[in-house]
Design a binder for these strands. Sequence first.
DNA 1: TATTGTTATACTCTATAACTATA
DNA 2: TATAGTTATAGAGTATAACAATA
Lengths: 160, 160
Amino acid sequence: MVESVNHGLPGGYDQGMRPGTEDHDLARTLAVLHRQVALRYGAVAREAGLTLQQAETLCRLERSTPSFGELARLLGCDKTNVTGLIDRLERRGLVRRDPDPADRRVSRAALTDEGRATVRRLSERFADVVAEHCATLPASDRRSLARLGAAAARALEEAP
Amino acid sequence: MVESVNHGLPGGYDQGMRPGTEDHDLARTLAVLHRQVALRYGAVAREAGLTLQQAETLCRLERSTPSFGELARLLGCDKTNVTGLIDRLERRGLVRRDPDPADRRVSRAALTDEGRATVRRLSERFADVVAEHCATLPASDRRSLARLGAAAARALEEAP
DNA sequence: TATTGTTATACTCTATAACTATA
DNA sequence: TATAGTTATAGAGTATAACAATA
């Protein structure tokens, strides 16, 4: 196993663990994992004729119907992007604009039936890809990763 | 701990684990984690006046000087994008084009000193963000996640 | 007055097709 | 002829500033 090897950080801390090195290990792992997932997830999205952003947006709408401002925050982009993003998804019949009954300024983005089917298709396809590639890992490791990764995602989600 | 809860998959497999459910758990975790990392990593890149793609590109050049075609494969995009991407980074003094002595068709992308300093700054800033948010996780969990995440990244990298 | 979504603008990212210069 | 990088083009993603409708 080579996971704890020093990956070329300047200075060479091979002998003793300097405080802070573990932070870099975890951060580096998260960055590398993020890149590989983005590559595979992007390929799945492209297969379905969607951009990565469109796929992300659809998945964000699976469990809620956020306002455009909330959606911008969820996606980490400016609210001005959301207008065009939803325009394009609406034009393809995957999303619809629902007026908010309590505040007439607000629009909420909601999946259409076809949008919901698309999300399901994306999720299953991505799960297949992950299963195929991660079959080499022990089942116990896969379970641990699912548990720890979810905890890390929650930690990263918290403010600030 | 709520890690093993069924997160709203249609059908409700609360009673017995159906074969394949674990695949979905891992895939869902990887997708969620990927989104949160992209949000934090994107914020760090933006702080430095870079797009996420530019930051990714710089990091890819930390340990090698790939040809433009190889870089396109690493980034998961078409080779035609690499020209402009390197153009913009070159204009900012972060990257330079090195001719390949063995094949005069090939250009290799290499970090300048300033580019290398930028990568170091991005890495440290991102490590700080990760450390800050993940401080709530037990140290043993952080170590396990670094190990398992790296293994998963390698598994996802393999063809196909 | 403050907020929500929108538009206008400018720049970046992305893929397809056609090109050039090497091999 | 095949390949590496480039250009032209078109569409999508991105942020800033200014705006209309609503609160």
